[in-house]
């Protein structure tokens, strides 16, 4: 499990090349900055199409959208073949490349337990093309392909529980984290760096343009997501051992997270109570898992 760090233990060295072309207040740009600080310079960064975040001072490899897992596999096997296993193989993908179009190849790479990092900046829609729904979009959220119409209002399906899905592959390490909790994020990378095999980190990365809130509130939004239980912070080792990293005495009501975001503006009281119930139920499962130290579905 990851070991807690404090703010003073966050590396000072910046590995991003800035300013970049991300929007003002981009959560993913911050995610990239924090992740690669902790990863360090000895890595090859892999890209598939996604919204621009932060460019980092790493050699870069890219391939087709649907191929994240295969690309990382190829690099890792190639490095093995030429005797350079010291180099870290890091994929920094969006939720589209993880939950949806890239899922198949990632699942196969997880099953083969390739020695790679898969890091997802989850902004809960296809933001690069202008906010279309993805498998990561939460229920009822408005996107440009789940509009608020007179008949259907927002997305009608729930978000995939991607961390548990990958945990079910029995991979050595998977964790969720958030740009609102940099110490948690960096502690998890630090731990992952000691693990050989498939490592995955799902980072909540609020998007002011798609979620429709003011860009200055990105961190506040991330924190509210965690504090309401909508975005729990946890880690799972070998598909089994479980730890909940953030456990407040009481969760805030989900409305505190939903209300400031215009993508949820149309929600009815009924919609909100459904989200509240879902969240409470999942939170109960997570608490129980934490108590047992073993993941429950």
């Amino acid at each position: 499990m990851s070991e807690r760090i404090n703010r003073l233990q966050i590396p000072m060295e910046e590995l991003t090349i800035t300013p970049g072309s991300a929007c003002q207040g981009c959560g993913a740009a911050l995610a990239a900055r924090l992740v690669f600080k902790a990863i360090g310079p000895n890595a090859i960064r892999h890209r598939i199409p996604c919204c621009p975040d932060s460019t980092t001072a790493h050699p870069s490899a890219n391939s087709v959208f649907e191929s994240g897992g295969a690309m990382l596999t190829g690099t890792w096997r190639g490095l093995k073949a030429i005797g350079r296993t010291d180099v870290q193989v890091v994929g920094f993908f969006g939720d589209g490349g993880t939950y949806d179009i890239g899922f198949q190849s990632l699942s196969a790479a997880a099953e083969r337990n390739e020695n790679i990092w898969v890091i997802t900046k989850d902004n809960e829609a296809y933001m690069n093309t202008g906010n279309q729904r993805s498998g990561a979009t939460p229920i009822f959220a408005r996107t440009s392909t789940t509009p608020v119409g007179s008949v259907i209002k927002g997305k009608q399906m729930r978000k995939k529980k991607i961390a548990k899905i990958f945990a079910a592959h029995g991979i050595p390490y998977i964790a969720t984290t958030s740009v609102g909790y940099p110490e948690d994020l960096i502690a998890k990378i630090n731990y992952g760096k000691t693990v050989e095999g498939f490592k995955m980190l799902i980072i909540q990365s609020p998007c002011p343009v798609g979620w429709r809130y003011d860009g200055s509130k990105t961190i506040a939004m991330a924190r509210l997501g965690v504090q309401t239980g909508i975005w729990p912070l946890f880690e799972i080792i070998d598909g089994e051992k479980f730890k909940l990293n953030y456990k407040p005495r009481e969760l805030k009501p989900v409305t505190e997270y939903l209300k400031p975001q215009a993508r949820f503006r149309h929600l009815t009281d009924e919609n909100i109570s459904l989200i509240q119930e879902d969240t409470a139920k999942e939170w109960e499962t997570l608490l129980k898992s934490d108590e047992l130290g073993r993941v429950l579905l």
Partner: peptide, 26 residues
């Protein structure tokens, strides 16, 4: 929390590099 590393940490104090600041307000 600055996404663009526009705030440098020097002598235990912040210093803004304005050419990197997009004015997001975080």
């Amino acid at each position: 929390f600055c996404p663009e590393t526009a705030i440098q940490w020097k002598d235990d104090r912040p210093e803004i590099e304005y050419h990197k600041c997009k004015g997001c307000g975080i």
